[in-house]
Amino acid sequence: MSSTMTNVSETPEARPRSPLYWLRYSITQYTIQWLLLIVVIILSLANTNFRQPANLLSVLLQASFAGIGAAGMTLIIINGAFDLSVAGILGLCGVVLGLVLPSIGIVPSILLALVVGVLLGVVNGLVVTKVRVPAFIATLGMMYIYLAIGFIITNGQVVPVTDASFRSLGTGNLLGLPIPFLIMIVTYVVLYGVLNFTTYGRFIRAVGSNPTASRVAGIPVDNVQIFAFALVGLCTALAGVALTAYLSSAQPNMATGYELRVIAAAVVGGTSLKGGQGTLFGTFTGALFFTVINNALNLFNVGAYWQYVAVGLIIITALGLEALRHRFAPASRG
């Protein structure tokens, strides 16, 4: 019960709503989805290149690399923690995958990469819960450790990936859609199920809403958090598989700045850094929104360096707007 999000429709009186009310409701509840729709319509009208099917498919493809990882990040932020080490996890998983691929074949390599991702996530979770270090600093330290391990096992070299059928995982299409985008959809569907229909998934939100109450209620708070970190590791490893296939190579620093893009997708999608609040659908839209903006910057020939500025501005704006919304609508808080 406490795990369901408070929303406007739960006011006690059940009088019929005017259309205006439903419009306002959908705008406040689905802000980012409306925003994405408006931006896509404007861009389609303003730029003929944007609305080309090839470009739209490439937006979906580009969105999926950050999008897959953002699913995990959403869970850990809902849990009230944070993971800055995802760039290190992604690089390390990609490197492991690239190194073992020639000798053990595609499926075992992918499974191994996913297992490595889960293990690294569990390590993060153990450091945060057992050593009692604040998550964002612990994972900042872990990120450099993972990066260093990646460099040590590759000796600083790029790992080439030549297997054509593996590479099609990153570059191929299925049912007219890029395969990484399909992986992203599956990831979100599965995690939605985990978050809403499994006991541990529901604990994730409960712990994020109120850790003390959760502990008193007998929820194994530490284990739930380790579970959430493991899911982050799993999603990030999956993104690593897709990115390695797409780039046809792997190196430890292949995802520098990944944490920013992933966190941006989550917070733009309405995930609250206070924990407890956020939806996977929001993050999914956030990842698309973000890629559309980057794509537009490219189409309008804005230099690559501006994208750093755009990422930061979007994160801060999204968080600032959320804070404003809370300030002006205190009643809607749980």
Partner: peptide, 21 residues
């Protein structure tokens, strides 16, 4: 804006890196 310090400065890290480049 009441943004937690580490996320606000994470965003600024990206903005200022872009500005430097």
């Amino acid at each position: 804006l009441r943004v937690p310090a580490f996320v606000a400065t994470l965003g600024m890290m990206s903005i200022l890196r872009g500005a430097a480049l």
